[in-house]
Every structure is written in C-alpha cells, then in structure tokens.
Design a protein around this nucleic acid. Structure first.
Lengths: 219, 219
DNA sequence: ACTTGAACATACTATCGAGTATGTTGTCAA
DNA sequence: TTGACAACATACTCGATAGTATGTTCAAGT
C-alpha cells in the first residue's frame, strides 16, 4: 500500500527489491503459521496472489527464501537497537531503552521474528540441507552478535549494582524469553492503536528488568 | 532400561502400554528436533529400531500419535504440580513450589513439552486435519486448565501483597515464557547430576518470581 | 496341540510438493 | 523499433512420505 499500484502486468527491473520484500512478507506469514516444512511455496505464492514461478525467479530454493527472511528479521532487530548503543547514558538506562526497542520491533515484525526463532533451532538440530547450512551458521553468528550487545549491557549494569543475577547465560536467556514472548502470545487486535501496543511493550520490559533484580520504577 | 529385555521377538498383549510409551518417546524426540511435519514416521520407527508397521498398529494416523504425545506431556505437568495444589500454605510459597515443580518437570520431559508447545500453535493456526482438530481443541482445554492453576495462585499472592503485576495475562504469559525457557535453551550435559539441574531450575524460578515483583529471597 | 488374534514386519500405492523446463509479456537500452 | 533480457506464468517431473494391504511370528485361551 506504500507504493502506488502499477497498472502493468510485470514490474520493472528496478523494483526487484520491492518484489523480493513482498515475497518475504508472504513467506514470513506462512512460515509463522504453519512452520517451514509444512509451508509449500504454492501457498506462499497464493498469499501474494502470484505463482511459484515468481518465487523461483528470485530465489534458488525454498531454503534460500527462508534464509533471506531470517536475515531480514535480524536486520530489523539491529536497526532497532543500533541508535541506542551509541548513546551515552548509564547502563541500566541503556538496557531499558534496548529492551523497549526490541519488544516494539518484535511486535511490529512478529512474523519475521518467528522465522528467526525457527532458524535458530533448525541450526541446533541440523535439519537444513548441507549447502545452505553454511549460510545458516553465518546467520546464527549474527544472532550471537545481537545477543552479545545485551550481554554487555547486562554486565555493565551488574557492575553498577543496578541489577543482580547468578548465571549470566541463564539470566540472558530468561530475559530473551520474556521480551520475545509477544512473538508467541501477542495477537494484534483490530483498531489497536500505537499507544496500546506501547503499553504492552512497556509491561514486557518491566517484567524483563524486574527479572534481573531491578527494583527501581519505570519512567 | 527399567524393564528386563524380553528374549522374544514380539511383546505380550499386556505390554501394549509399554510399547506405546516407547513409540511416544521416539516420536517426541523426532518432533522436537525436526518439527511435526518434517518428521516422517519412518524416522520415528528407526529411532526405536522398529518399523512403520508397528506405529500404525497402535495409532490410526501420524496426527493421533502426535496428539497422544501432547496429552502425555500435559499429564506429566499435572502430575508434577497436583500434590502441591492441596498443600495448605501461603500463596507465595505455593507459587514457588509450583514453579519449581514445573521447571523440573519441563527439563526432565523436554521433548514432550516441546510437542505441547507445537500443539498449542498448531491449534492457533488451524493446521491440523479437521477430524483430529476437535481432539486438539480438547487438549488445548487441558492446557488452559493447567494455566488456570497458576493464574489463581497469582491472584492470591497478589491479594496477599507478595507480588504485583499490571495485566495478569501478560504477567502470566511472561512467567510461562520464563519457566518454559529450558525447553528451548537447555541442553543436558553429560555427567550432569541432579544437583546441577536443580540449580538451573532454582535460578529459573528465581527469575520468574522476581519478574512478578517479589523481593524476598529464596529458601 | 491347535487355533485365533494381537503384535508386529514387509511391500506396495497414491499424493503432495520441491524443483525444472518452457512459454509469455513487457521493459529498456541502443 | 527492435531485440535482448528481466519478470514473471504455466506445465511438467520426480522423489519423499502418509497411509494401506498383506505376510509373519508368537502368546494365550481352550
């Protein structure tokens, strides 16, 4: 809806990124609701009122489409927290801001984040075909890098005495479970405006930092 | 390993429950690692050094096997917390005990709990074939009943002033995300004894009740 | 001891979906 | 303007797998 509808049947060469994004959005929704292997490319094509031919014109395989959705989901996450990383503020405040940004991003890009989650445990159990497996590992590296940003803020906030945890890995996992929760249980309501969504996100953030032993209150 | 190995090729009629349990354990592991639809019944059979014929002797379809694993997983959960429900103690203590029991159960029956999770969002998106869908709804009711037990303890503990939350649904979801976390991130180490597992569980419980605003310390 | 049926194993079918081969339409550069 | 190629659509192939049909072994009642 963002771009004017073309009257032509086929789209222009310069629009291939738009085409790929449309495919990815359809794929993300399908993968989210039925899972990677239960989703057929015919379904994905039907969702965007297209055909399998279009998908195979842009992607070499189903796995590559999946990986592109995965990568795009991770990019969205990075873009959400990157501006905060450079800000000069106490670790605890940076942590709060990062959590909030992450949850908002997660809610907005729910389908993509669900695919990211699927990708993570596809790697864990090695279901991907061998040729794409390498790329999957690379993307998992992205995920680790993202996680590390939170790990460092946690360490800093701990050093400042604002939070307290026993095992940082378990703590970080618990935090992520908490702030990724909306991927699983959040269902957007019709006519739900930005304020309501922010309220949900704020509550998630509150629980996440409380979990870390933070006893102050929220802004 | 609990029962002595039979020297006979086929097992006795009275052992059909044992046979079904063995099938379910293999299925749970397969479903956990590759997902429901990516798992073939030949894989499940191979995992228990058997054949598809045996599975179809006990189950009418792949979906029914899945549902039986689901049901069994839920039963394990109920059995874990049921004795605690009858105990006469302050709500906050009951909450702690229930959380601990749940996490321990979840870690011990990881594969089954993963299947429960898959079942939940299979229902949400209606992927199950229509005939088994009714049974899936029934099992979802079991899940809700289980969830309600925690919901009530939360309300009681809130009334006692021991915890504090804004939206109880979001709070409960966050708690479950936290205590179900091990299903996703826990990987059993070789030679890891009961004490170490309990330590992990205790930490999960700590984070879960901290999340609810509890500021006391743990036993 | 023999017969019936439960508990499997083996061999087959039918369908679905990933991938391919080929056809069609329109864009754009020269 | 035209021809080459990008952007698809259509029509197929082929392997994997859910489900079935049938064969085999043994346990237990009589």
């Amino acid at each position: 809806m963002a771009t004017a509808a073309r009257s032509t049947k086929y789209r222009r060469q310069s629009d291939t990124d738009l085409s790929r994004m449309e495919i990815m959005e359809g794929a993300a929704l399908c993968f989210e609701s039925r899972g990677y292997s239960a989703t057929s490319l015919d379904e994905v094509a039907a969702r965007i009122s297209s055909t399998k031919g279009r998908i195979y014109h842009h992607y070499a395989s189903k796995a590559e489409l999946f990986l592109d959705v995965y990568r795009t989901g991770m990019m969205m996450n990075f873009q959400a927290i990157e501006p905060i990383l450079e800000r000069d503020m106490p670790a605890i405040d940076r942590l709060k801001a990062m959590l909030k940004a992450h949850v908002m991003c997660v809610i907005r890009t729910k389908a993509f984040q669900n695919v990211v989650g699927q990708g993570v445990d596809m790697l864990r159990h090695g279901t991907m075909p061998a040729n794409e497996h390498a790329e999957l590992r690379q993307l998992a590296g992205l995920r680790d890098a993202y996680s590390d940003h939170f790990l460092k803020v946690l360490e800093d906030a701990m050093a400042d005495g604002d939070i307290a945890y026993a095992n940082i890995k378990i703590a970080l996992n618990s935090v992520f479970m908490c702030i990724n929760g909306p991927i699983v249980w959040f269902t957007p309501r019709k006519g739900q405006d930005e304020r309501e969504i922010e309220a949900v996100a704020d509550e998630c953030v509150l629980y996440a930092i409380r979990l870390l032993g933070y006893t102050g209150d929220m802004p």
